[in-house]
Write a protein that binds this DNA or RNA. Structure first.
Lengths: 171, 171
DNA sequence: AGCTAACATTTGACAACTAAACTATCGCGG
DNA sequence: CCGCGATAGTTTAGTTGTCAAATGTTAGCT
């Protein structure tokens, strides 16, 4: 089939990853990136069509779901790895949808705490259940042993990267 | 001084990944996602401060660098996993910066081919060199053996995901 | 030729995202 | 108390990203 299809991103080659003589670190990065993009796009598409939600919204809700007392926006920013400014907009939209509420504690008027509403909890738990299933399906062909290895090795990568971020970090 | 800058994303906990009783597939996904975000942010920051470029621009240039004859926008879209509409804007900006040029072949006026300019080649090769070094640095603590394993297992994941995308895929 | 289906890219409306500037508070030392 | 420097969030400007619909173009059919 010489189909040119469009959508559906052709599975064959998708994205570079040109083996060539590149350094292993670079190849690993390209592979991680394309794999992650592929999964993200699929999850995004399903969240959108099945729940009318976006991935970052889902991520944010997930954090609040586990902290029934709510979280300050700064904390949400760190946990979701999203910048402060972005959290503001994200929270605004979710509040508009009635999934969360914002409130300022009495002690310190600088802070804003976001917390799930009843509706938010219900919505999220439905999404979470589906989400977990999608992941299992997508990784169905990967053996449990390989997943375990990946889990550990990925931690090594994350730790190494964390230790070599540009200046600053602090000690 | 006063840095604070940014902070730096605290290395300790960074992002969820709450081990808890979650399914391995889900944990792996969360870990891949946070690790990828971490690396992307670092590369983005460096590309910006050292070269005034963005990551998607770098990706796009990388594709053109290997195809001296240029690529059609649709092909670029597939390879970079970026939507068509987005490629249009990306190409416009890069053309504005003088790194690439757009031209329409005589045979078929529906298509637009983007190709690197001399300046684009020079810029990209400098960035690519630095980029490779950043990756090596970031992954410095990961043993070559682990990288090799990751490379292979990641392929398995990618293949599995590709085979289980929602409807449609080909046949 | 005239029609229509398939293609390639652009446009438009939004959400997400970053970095940097700005606003409002809090808290501590003088 | 007052002021000054941290903190917490919001705003602003601009890029990236998605999808869906619109524009042009080409090619096949009759």
């Amino acid at each position: 089939m010489a189909q040119a299809d469009n959508e559906t991103i052709d599975l064959e080659i998708i994205v570079q990853d040109t083996q060539e003589g590149k350094k292993p670190e670079l190849r690993l990065w390209l592979r991680m990136l394309s794999t992650t993009k592929l999964i993200s796009q699929e999850i995004r598409r399903r969240l959108r069509t099945e729940f009318g939600a976006t991935l970052p919204q889902f991520d944010l809700l997930a954090q609040l779901y586990r902290e029934k007392d709510g979280l300050r926006l700064g904390e949400l920013s760190k946990r979701t790895m999203v910048t402060n400014g972005n959290v503001t907009g994200l929270v605004e939209r979710l509040e508009g949808d009635g999934l969360i509420v914002r409130e300022t504690p009495h002690g310190d008027r600088r802070v804003t705490v976001a917390k799930l509403t009843r509706k938010g909890e219900d919505s999220f738990s439905a999404m979470a259940k589906a989400h977990e299933g999608w992941l299992r399906d997508m990784m169905a062909d990967v053996e449990p042993a390989a997943i375990k290895v990946l889990l550990d090795d990925m931690s090594l990568v994350k730790a190494s990267v964390s230790n070599h971020l540009s200046e600053g970090e602090s000690a």
